[in-house]
Simulated assay, not measured.
Amino acid sequence: MADLQCAARVLVARHGEAAYESELLSDAGGWLTPLGRAQARELAESLRGQRVARVWTSDMARAVQTGEIVAGVLGTDVVVRTGLREFGVGDARGTTGVPDPFAATFAAWLDGDLAARIPGGESGEEVVTRYRAVLEEVADTHRGEAALVVSHGGVMCLALSALAVNLAPSHSRDLPMPHCGLVAMEADADGWVARSWAGQDL
């Protein structure tokens, strides 16, 4: 991040409930269900008092759709960044996902081992690095403002816990991120601090 004169407030939300073309694992984007659209509208209404300057989303359809609904309510625009997408499924692409092919790697990430890698996919270090780059861009763009980032549950739990100086890497282990759950992050020259996690103040 550049030397920030005043903190940026970055609100990071998971997308709304989504449906998918296939039950097999893939990196495809999915689309919002009617409930997911209602969740996105509820998220937007909850943010009316935050004076959100812009909405940033992952390039996956379920995140873009969530961001567009929120931006429409708040009267702002949407910027898309691939660095905000969910971690890739790697060699598990095309499988049923039973048993969970990511459980061991994700557990290692939450234990602080970011060198662990999804077979055929990304390491924790690679995921956090791309995610950090986008959050820093958001923070540099919105000095003294609030911005909303729409992303995905897994990458949020990994990257935000790794980036926030006041959170342990394992913070999210027993705190799954609900659809349209929100994490409030603040950025200044000293780094990232989490102020709330899925409705709980920190």
Rank of each mutant, 00 (worst) to 15 (best):
A159R: 02
E23I: 12
G124Q: 02
M156D: 04
L175F: 06
G191F: 07
R9L: 10
S46F: 06
G199N: 02
Y20C: 06
P99V: 11
G120R: 09
L47W: 05
E126M: 02
F102L: 09
S196W: 12
A53I: 02
R41K: 13
R37P: 05
E86C: 10
D113K: 02
V193M: 12
N166I: 09
F106D: 07
E125N: 13
R81P: 01
R130T: 06
R54L: 08
V165E: 13
T57A: 07
A63K: 05
S172F: 15
L148E: 01
L43Y: 10
G72M: 01
E21T: 14
G154Y: 03
P176I: 06
E21L: 14
L43I: 09
S46M: 08
E136N: 13
A2D: 15
V165P: 00
Q65H: 11
T96K: 13
A38G: 12
E68K: 03
R93G: 10
G191Y: 07
W109S: 02
L35W: 00
G112C: 02
E122R: 01
V12E: 03
V155M: 01
R41M: 10
G88W: 11
A7S: 14
A164I: 08
P178I: 05
G88S: 15
V134F: 09
M177L: 15
A61F: 08
A28Q: 15
G83T: 10
A159V: 12
A40W: 00
E86L: 09
G94L: 01
C180Q: 05
Q200F: 12
D140C: 11
V80N: 10
Q39S: 12
L25F: 01
A194Q: 07
S170A: 08
D59L: 04
V12G: 04
S58F: 05
R117H: 10
D100R: 07
V52Y: 07
T96N: 13
P176G: 09
V128R: 10
